Computed example of a mutant assay.
Amino acid sequence: MKRNIAVVWGGYSSEIVVSAKSMAGICSFLDEEKYNIYKIRITKEKWTVEVGGYVYTVDKNDFSYICPISDQRIYFDFAYIIIHGTPGEDGRLQGYFDMLGIPYSTCGMMASALTMNKFICNNFLKNFGIRVADSLYLNKDTKYNLRGIEEKLKFPLFVKPNTGGSSFATTKVKAVDQLQQAIDAAFGETPDVIIESFISGREVTCGCYKTKDKEVVFPITEVVTPNEFFDYEAKYEGQVEEITPARISGEMTDEIQRLTRKVYDLVGAKGLIRVDFIISDNQPFLLEVNTVPGMTQTSFIPQQIAAAGLDIKEVLTEIIENEFNAI
C-alpha cells in the first residue's frame, strides 16, 4: 500500500512565497508510484489540504482530514516540511509532529531551534573552532548606540533578521546614516536582529545528508552575483551565476566538505541541510546553516545532487524511508 506523504508548506513569514516554489519542486521530485502526495498549506489562519482541485480543512488534533466523497478520515504517514522560517524551520512544527509520532524530513526540534537563530548558532559553532563573522545581537529591549556599533564592527556591515531567511529585510550598510533604517527594516521581519561584520571573499555553499547506512556530501556551488550581496533578487530573480562544482582548489573543496559534515554532526542535523560559507584570505568562514534549504528546480541542492550524478527522486526516497526505518 502506498504511504501518504504530506508536503507541508506555507508559514507565518514573508518566506511563504519561497515556500510555495519549494513545495512545487518537492512535489515534482517525489516518487508518485511509491507515495500518495498531498499539499498541506499552513498559515496562522488555517491548515488546509488540496485534493483534486478542492481544499479541505486539516484537523490539527491528529493531522488528518475527512474526505467528503468517501466520508473517510485520511491520515498522513510522513511530513515533508518545506516551510522556510517559522513554524517549519524553527522547531515548532517538529515538536508538534514529535508529539503525534509522525516522522518528518527535517532536523528535530532542538536542532531546528538552534540553527534558526543565527546569532546563537554561529556562536555555538565558534566554540568548536569554526570561523564566523563578528556580530552583535539586538532585541526590542536592547539599548544600543549607532556609533558604538560602528566602532565594534566597522563599515560596511550586514543587518539581518536574526531568525529570518531568503535575505528578506537584509541590508548591507556602508555608513552610519543608513544603519537605523536597516535595523528598523530587520525588526519589521522578526523580533530580534543580528548585525555582522562584512567579510570580503568568495561565497560557496555545500549540501549534505545522512542516513543510517551512509553519508553524502555534495559538490560545492560557487555563488557569483553583480549585486551588493546574495540578496533576494539574486536568489530568486536570476541575478546570479551559480557554478557547480565551485572553482576552488581541491584542498579547499575538501575543507568545505569537512566543515559541512562537522556542522551537520555538531548541530544534530537530520535530512538534507545546506551550509553557506565565504572564503576570505584562503580561510572559510561560516555564514549560516539552512535546515530547510530551497528545493525549486533551480535551487542549490537539486543542482548539487545532479552534479554528484545522483537522482533526486532516489535521494528523497532514501531520506523518507530512513525515517520509517528509524521508528
Results as ranks from 00 to 15, higher is better:
D71K: 06
K214E: 00
R3F: 11
G268H: 11
Y144L: 10
C27Y: 00
K34A: 10
V51P: 03
F76P: 00
V224M: 11
Y232H: 13
I305A: 02
Y38K: 07
D281K: 06
L179Q: 06
G271D: 02
A186P: 03
D77Y: 09
D62P: 03
N162I: 12
A24C: 12
G148Y: 13
V132N: 08
S167Q: 04
G268K: 05
V17T: 15
Q283I: 15
T317A: 14
L179E: 04
S166F: 11
D134H: 14
G11N: 03
T211L: 11
I69F: 14
E215S: 09
P68K: 09
I83M: 06
Q297I: 08
P191H: 09
I183W: 03
S167K: 04
L138E: 01
R274K: 10
E314V: 06
K270S: 09
R92M: 15
E288M: 05
F158N: 06
S70K: 12
R41Y: 04
T296L: 12
R247D: 10
Q304L: 10
F324D: 07
E203M: 02
Y35L: 01
D98P: 00
N127P: 02
R274H: 14
I319L: 15
E150Y: 08
Q180Y: 07
E89Y: 05
T225K: 12
T298E: 05
T205R: 11
I305M: 03
D141C: 08
I81E: 05
C67T: 06
R258V: 01
I327F: 13
D71S: 13
D213G: 07
A24L: 13
N117P: 09
V263H: 01
T48H: 09
F300P: 00
I183N: 00
I243V: 15
Y65C: 01
R92V: 13
V267A: 02
P219I: 07
S299Y: 04
E251D: 14
L125T: 02
L114C: 07
I220E: 00
I243Q: 10
L259E: 13
